[in-house]
């Protein structure tokens, strides 16, 4: 199969066309070992992307065993047991409607009466905590030689003026041209994305810093925790904060924030 490696790759990434495609497909149809190799290579690519190749669902003893079991009374029993647990959990966390109405009314009365009282003691919302703990001073300064209008320079100045979309595009361009770029840039891309409400993508950027060898990698945890705060996921924020070691960046602040949470 060695000789076909490049063709298999080109075929899978859709780079073959015209005659090249036709002749590779002809080759495939007459060569079972090659076909198996292509299927496996495709499976691996899909698995790596966490994609689901439903058309490739095997029809074999194992899937047959699963199907038979799913039709059994035993499977139904298991499903019912799980449903029961689910229902009791839901009832516990959401009281039945009639009673709920009463609770809501009672709570409203209490709230109105106690608004003033609550204002004095209420827990700051996580969004507010984000604002309190987020500081641009915690951002590393990416000093660089003056090399004219580089994309990094443009990115940083856009970031400063809060033009996050321009910042993000320029950072991306810079990163694509510089394979050995300072991983601390991911803090900037992460925060730009966060400001553009692209929470999931922002987390990926912080993870890139955390996974890097940078001395500042612990900053990745700090900002990742703040990102979770911003979307109100205090549990995850706490989880991330507790990963910080005493020598890590903002360890004391992190302890303070953990207490607030």
């Amino acid at each position: 199969m060695e000789g076909y490696r490049e063709q298999i790759e080109a075929y899978l990434s859709g780079e073959l066309s015209g005659d090249a495609l036709a002749s590779f497909e002809a080759l495939l149809s007459g060569n079972e070992a090659l076909r198996e190799e292509v299927v496996l290579a495709r499976q691996i690519n899909l698995m790596a992307k966490n994609e689901f190749d439903r058309e490739q669902l095997p029809q074999n003893e194992y899937t047959q065993e699963l199907r038979t079991f799913l039709k059994s009374d035993r499977a139904q029993e298991l499903k019912n047991a799980l449903k029961n647990a689910e229902q009791s959990y839901q009832q516990q966390s959401n009281p039945p409607k009639s009673r709920r109405k009463f609770y809501i009314a009672a709570i409203l009365v209490l709230l109105l009466g106690a608004t003033f009282f609550f204002q004095m003691f209420k827990q700051p919302s996580s969004e507010k905590m984000y604002a309190n703990y987020f500081s641009l001073e915690d951002m590393p300064s990416l000093t660089q030689r003056d090399d004219g209008e580089s994309s990094l320079k443009l990115a940083l100045s856009a970031f400063k003026t809060k033009d996050y979309s321009a910042a993000n595009n320029n950072f991306k361009e810079y990163l694509s041209l510089n394979a050995n770029a300072d991983p601390r840039i991911y803090l900037y891309t992460g925060i730009s994305l966060l400001e553009m409400d692209q929470f999931e993508n922002a987390l990926l950027e912080f993870d890139k810093l955390i996974d890097s060898e940078s001395l500042d990698r612990s900053k990745g945890y700090w900002f990742k925790a703040l990102a979770y705060l911003k979307v109100g996921n205090n549990t995850k924020a706490k989880e991330v904060l507790s990963e910080l070691q005493s020598t890590d960046f903002n360890f004391n602040k992190a302890q303070q924030l953990l207490e607030d949470l």
Partner: peptide, 21 residues
């Protein structure tokens, strides 16, 4: 490396159950 990974995947005892191969 990809070849190595493919060989490892192929040699896994559960591989046949999970693919139509």
């Amino acid at each position: 490396c990809k070849k190595r990974l493919m060989d490892l995947v192929k040699s896994h005892p559960n591989y046949k159950n999970l693919t139509g191969l």
